[in-house]
């Protein structure tokens, strides 16, 4: 139940691809990785999560952290979420504050 992640930054759009499980055992490492985005000029953070099968509150906290530290005017996208992941995002109420898409449309 590992986490795989990949990050690309292009034209102010940070695309973060996640696969596997984002939980308390790996959220810390992932957060360290996201810190690399602090101080860069970013308008959108796009979490590409079609292969993410599980997320816990520790994972959502990393997304909150990203928004809080990378910039209040950054738009957060959640793209391709499976039902299990989307249910958790909805339970947290964060779905109201993210742009949720099936495919990234910008």
């Amino acid at each position: 139940m590992d986490l795989q992640y990949k990050m690309e930054l292009n034209d102010g759009i940070a695309r973060v691809t996640l696969a596997g499980s984002l939980d308390a055992t790996n959220a810390g490492n992932f957060q360290e990785e996201l810190k690399k985005l602090i101080g860069q000029k970013i308008s959108k953070i796009v979490f590409m999560v079609k292969d993410l099968t599980y997320i816990a509150s520790a994972g959502l906290r990393v997304m909150i952290f990203a928004k809080q530290r990378i910039g209040a005017d950054v738009q957060v996208y959640l793209v391709g979420a499976q039902e299990a992941v989307l249910d958790v995002v909805k339970m947290s109420g964060l779905d109201t504050f993210m742009t949720i898409q099936k495919e990234f449309e910008g």
């Binding site: 906290r61 909150i64 109420g93 964060l94 109201t96 993210m98």
Partner: peptide
């Protein structure tokens, strides 16, 4: 408070809230 936007969220409490739900 699950109605707060991301920038105003506190770090704790979400997990237990999930368990209760």
């Amino acid at each position: 408070d699950t109605t707060l936007p991301m920038e105003e969220r506190q770090i704790g409490g979400l997990g237990i809230f999930f368990a209760k739900q």
